[in-house]
Amino acid sequence: MYTQALDSADTAAPQGDADEGGRRERFQGRIDRDEKIEPKDWMPQEYRQTLIRQIAQHAHSEIVGMLPEGNWITRAPSLRRKVVLIAKVQDEGGHGMYLYSAAETLGVSRGALIEQLLAGRAKYSSIFNYPTLTWADIGAIGWLVDGAAIMNQIPLCRCSYGPYARAMVRICKEESFHQRQGYELMLTLARGSAAQRAMAQDALNRWWWPSLMMFGPSDAHSVHTAQSLRWKIKRFSNDELRQKFIDVTVPQAQYLGLTVPDPELRWDEPAQHYRAGPIAWSEFHAVLKGDGPCNRERLAARRAAHEAGRWVREAAAAYADKHGADAVAAPSG
């Protein structure tokens, strides 16, 4: 991501200048023609802020998302499952890095974003505040949580902001393995002993509703949707994406021989859609506000990791100071 470090916020045209209206009109014209907006291009301050907020939340989600799965690396039941889980968690870390880089092109520093996260002032996906109680949860996360993430992220590959769209292309390519390994894990349990099947069902019971909530509040209550659609930051509304997810996922659950934990779920033949029962939004808002099962634990783990890594960062900086930052460069190839 071609980055302009910290200067863009200052070099952006002062808001309210004489040609502000004209600039906005030309900007929307470019969006309407499906042109990409790049870091040095003029953009409305609200577009910049919306993107910074969204990309940073997305980056934080990737980083915090490493915790529930990392919890099971040492207890994976086979070497094959262990290398897969390590690779997946490493990917999530990489995705966080791509996204922080994209956010930085908008003129915010990485240090500031991480500080917001550690201070508890930034949001991240509500899903990662649920605990991973059994090994089946690793399967359910890959299948449902990564499945929902992919559903959200595929349209973001066409987002109007170039660096974000390019990061999403890279991420989506890598996510596909995440979802497939999760489903394969669930399939293995579903075809196993009665106890294993029960474990798989229990994981589905606990992850189904939180996965549906990942798409965000319903359209009627979503504050940002209309403007984001106009700017082509979003391409589909929360409810449209949630419906797509339900439609593809219910048959996958049926194939596993598992029951989706929604007594009101039914097939709507004329509309060719599954209709889900009502979502418990009070739970979603409680988790977002910080009162989910693991909010405090997740932030404490991030803070501890940041502190534990401090001496490494300081040593690397001291080494660079002593030897000159470019002295140990590899020869160009």
Binding site: Y2, G94, A327, V328, A330
Partner: peptide, 24 residues
């Protein structure tokens, strides 16, 4: 060009680039 990253020095930048951008 594939992206950007932070590093203390050029050597670390190469190593981080390897981990961040060439896992596959």
């Amino acid at each position: 060009h594939v992206g950007s990253l932070h590093a203390a020095d050029a050597r670390m930048a190469i190593e981080h680039a390897r981990d961040t951008y060439t896992r596959r």
